[in-house]
């Protein structure tokens, strides 16, 4: 059986390659259509006043995103402050201290299960634990029965006022989002820490560094680009999260920013407002998009699209930042 070397055995393979190529491109095509449609719809509504106005249900042309921008800003800052230290701490524990103990294995399995829990379930958790605090502070509930009077909050120095239960405040949202992103941050940090070669650690120990010194002076700095990439990516995911925020009571219509801070410089000039902002009501960018998308009038389509453009711009900026950090560190470090 002598077949020609020129026979056409590859034709079917060509077809298959084209099908695969088509599949890949169709997903990207979808993305292109999506962005085009949104840009087209939102083009007339993007202006400075869209960024500096509050929402408006009577005259769509006056509606703006200011409250959502500040709400999302506060959410991100607080989520960052809560989840990053805890996430890094957890990853350090798992990678450096608990080599292969049973508890570490359980935590590890649990982490991958947590990562698969739908975000709305985190919303239910946040609603019950942070917003309502199981209703124990409600009128006639257990706290009132035990203490004899209704507790409404804690008052600290500098006029800091923590409501109890936390209610539908920024901090409830941030705590919920923190729990949501923690598994991702922990796993990303673990990978970054694992990528730091053991020889480096041994060399530091041989120089008389303690384990803790080794971690702080060598392992963490070396892992930092990887950690930050993971953190930024998961925060950019969190900034678009809508469902859990609806659950924990972000307002769908609000004409105020947390603690009425409307300009960045007020963060400094109004310190009292700054420390109380986490305990104020809020809305967030994706929530505003959602509530505009639900409006029946046609004008709000453009507004929703404009909102999406702002949201996606913020998101892409964060993603770009993460990619930049990753690439820069890859040039620097080659073990």
């Amino acid at each position: 059986m002598s077949s020609s070397l020129y026979s056409n055995s590859q034709t079917r393979g060509r077809w298959f390659e084209y099908v695969c190529l088509l599949a890949t491109w169709s997903a990207l095509f979808f993305l292109a259509v999506l962005l085009t449609v949104i840009l087209w719809q939102g083009r007339g509504n993007l202006s400075m006043s869209f960024l500096s106005n509050f929402d408006d249900r009577l005259s769509p042309e006056k509606a703006g995103m200011l409250a959502g921008l500040w709400g999302s800003f506060w959410l991100m800052i607080l989520t960052f402050l809560i989840s990053v230290p805890v996430g890094i701490g957890a990853a350090i524990y798992l990678e450096e201290y608990s080599t292969d103990s049973w508890i570490a294995r359980i935590i590890q399995v649990n982490l991958s299960n947590l990562a698969g829990v739908p975000s709305i379930v985190y919303g239910i958790l946040g609603l019950t634990v942070f917003v309502r605090m199981f209703g124990i502070f409600a009128k006639g509930a257990i706290i009132e029965r035990m203490t004899g009077n209704q507790v409404e909050g804690l008052f600290f120095a500098f006029g800091l006022n923590v409501p109890l239960p936390l209610g539908t405040t920024v901090i409830s949202g941030a705590l919920t989002l923190s729990l949501l992103v923690l598994p991702v941050i922990i796993v990303a940090t673990q990978e970054a820490v694992r990528a730091v070669p053991g020889s480096i650690r041994h060399a530091a120990l041989a120089l008389g560094a303690t384990k803790w010194q080794t971690i702080v002076t060598l392992v963490l700095p070396a892992a930092m680009p990887g950690i930050m990439t993971g953190v930024i990516l998961s925060l950019s995911r969190a900034i678009g999260e809508t469902a859990p925020l609806i659950m924990v009571g972000a307002s769908t219509f609000l004409r105020a920013t947390p603690a009425d801070i409307e300009y960045p410089h007020e963060l400094v000039t109004k310190p009292r407002a700054t420390i109380n902002a986490p305990f104020d009501e809020y809305t967030a960018m994706p929530i505003m998009v959602y509530s505009w998308a639900k409006q029946a009038q046609r004008e709000y389509q453009g507004i929703a699209s404009a909102g999406i453009i702002v949201l996606v711009t913020v998101l892409l900026t964060m993603n770009g930042l993460a990619i930049y950090i990753r690439n820069r560190s890859q040039q620097h470090l080659r073990w």
């Binding site: 020889s199 480096i200 060399a203 530091a204 470090l333």
Partner: peptide, 8 residues
């Protein structure tokens, strides 16, 4: 060590 271990 055998393999040089400069810190980054």
């Amino acid at each position: 060590f055998q393999k040089s271990t400069p810190f980054p």
